[in-house]
Amino acid sequence: MSTGDDQPTISTAETVASSALDAGKAKKKRSQFTGNDRKVFLAMVGIPTFIHVAIVWIPTLLSILLSFTKWRGNDISEIEVTGVENYDVVLLGAFQGDTIQAILNNLWLLLFLFFGPTLLGMGLAYLLDKNLKGTRIYQSLFYTPVVLSLAVVGFIWQNIMYDQNYGLATWAFGGGDRVDWLGNQEFIFSIGNYGLSKNFLAILMAMAWRHTGYIMVLYLAGMKSVDAALRESASLDGCNEWQTFRHVLFPTLKPINVIVVVITVIEALRAYDIIAILNEPRNTELLSHLTTNALIGEGADNIGRGSAYATLLFLLCIGFVLWYVTNHYKKQENTV
């Protein structure tokens, strides 16, 4: 991470040589930066890296370390190493209930995003890719919510859709009664003491409103790049529409599928805003809320426990992140 001591050997020849097109005329010319250029180069790498590492990676490592300690956030000398005690409390002890419900909620969110907005978005993209008249207008309609923050989405849905008396959801499904969409913490189905609560499902609907357009636009971009001739020949060969989609279009969308999976998993683990703006109704908390509630605000003085929650969140996503990133750059190394 310290860029200062590594003095990178710069060689443009290597990059040129690896490019298949230019392989013929590549000259083995080794040019190394000298003098001012070297300083500029080090600054170009060093300054952004310093800021990024200081804001992202060092705090990440420190959080993991803090998860093995007890600290109220006062004097640094009061930090007390307690080993796995926080994990014990969070996973097996007094907070076990909160933790399990939060992890389940993260899981519901993930499954919901996959089977709701992702399939719907893919379907819409497929339909909108048919060269319809007015397809751009349709696209804009579905896409507009994507530019809004989930916090605003929550704010708007709470007001227009889920108002207990006047909301449109109440109007459409309430049968003339008040409905407490966001307060109803009853489980739709439960597993022991845990489950999927009605208010969480209401929030999932609002999230779908934003997520569908996002997925749609990604697939639309992917489908546009598929050669029409490929599809045409498939239909000439007697494939019906489903077969063409399943065996011709879908396999070419693999890179998009990977991105969609990454986005969905990360989004499901990171989600915070919409539930926070609705004041975290009971049974809708995610791991992200347990983390921040232990760290910041009134009565939040348990840095160790908050960090343990954060570390769980980190562990749930890091393998995935590394898998994606290394694959991406491995491919790039091969193709460039």
């Binding site: 050997t9 060689s11 952004p48 590492v53 990360i266 990171r270 992200s288 983390t291 969140l313 750059y329």
Partner: peptide, 28 residues
């Protein structure tokens, strides 16, 4: 430019962006 650690740096930045923000909060 190709240099010894260029891919490492790109991995560092890309992965950093995909982490949940909550993991950074306490120390920051």
């Amino acid at each position: 430019y190709s240099w010894r650690f260029n891919i490492f740096f790109l991995v560092l930045f890309t992965a950093g962006n995909l982490l949940p923000q909550q993991i950074m909060v306490a120390p920051l």
